[in-house]
Design a protein around this nucleic acid. Structure first.
Lengths: 144, 144
DNA sequence: TAATAAAGTTAGTCTAGGCTAATTATAGTC
DNA sequence: GACTATAATTAGCCTAGACTAACTTTATTA
């Protein structure tokens, strides 16, 4: 499949999230979500259309193609796992967890993601099973 | 302190590593280590010198300033922790662990790094204490 | 229905960070 | 001491991805 830069992956992810919120995705929504100006969105969407990840007719709505959705969901699933790790397991502040997840989500391959998921599942299972384990872990993490 | 892009952080880290290997760091070494051509190194080093992170006289050696070393070590310490996490804790292949660590090291702040370190310390302590814990964790991670 | 507001697009600029080709400096060898 | 190989630098180009300013399209509303 075609090459997707980090930046374009961010756009795909934002389109996925916006389409959950608004049903129709517009340039304006993406600009707001990503904190960029509309010409930047326009250029990115044009490139994504050229690569076959979105459909977009001029002055109209923006929609993911099947492949675009697949890619967007891949990125977003990484984001969610990482957020879980940072916010829940490590108890970092939500906005920091969010920012960190966002920064590194592009750099994890499927195998790494799978391993992290299993580690989180394991830790959560242990914590559910054992109060002692939970307090040990919390104490280890909060050792300020 | 002045702004350092991800790319410039990579150069600082490479200078730190090269200075451990070669004693005198040269453009050529950095180009090899980073997989770029020498004009790219030259431009980056020039910028780092302008920002006060390295000293470099034309056609001579490249040296970190105190601040440059501090920055480089900050990045490298993140790298090492992440490598430990990916290679040791998650048992990922060394080169994948290396690449992943390299990709995300720029995106972790000190607090996040501290929490990850504590989690790793905790897990390693538990594994040292308990064979059962170790095999449970290994089994959870290798659940193919 | 004409006027205006809002949204989208286009054109042109900038920065970071690569590259190649050509030049200049240094070092090693006859 | 001159010649050559290696290294470093400069000049100039390219791409991604941001921006502003100007323009066009669409939608709203008097």
């Amino acid at each position: 499949m075609a090459a997707l830069t980090e930046g374009l992956q961010d756009y795909l992810e934002a389109i996925l999230l916006c389409s959950a919120e608004h049903k129709f995705v517009r340039t304006k929504h993406l600009a707001e979500k990503l904190g960029v100006k509309s010409p930047s969105v326009n250029a990115a969407v044009k490139e994504l259309a050229r690569l076959g990840f979105v459909e977009h007719e001029s002055y109209g709505y923006i929609e993911l193609t099947a492949e675009g959705r697949r890619q967007a969901e891949s990125v977003y699933s990484k984001h969610r796992i990482l957020y879980r790790f940072f916010a829940k397991t490590l108890s970092l502040p939500n906005d920091l967890a969010e920012d960190t997840a966002c920064g590194i989500e592009h750099h994890l391959d499927e195998l790494t993601l799978k391993k992290i998921t299993r580690l989180l599942d394991f830790l959560e299972r242990k914590m559910k099973q054992s109060e002692e384990f939970t307090s040990e872990l919390r104490k280890a993490l909060d050792n300020d």
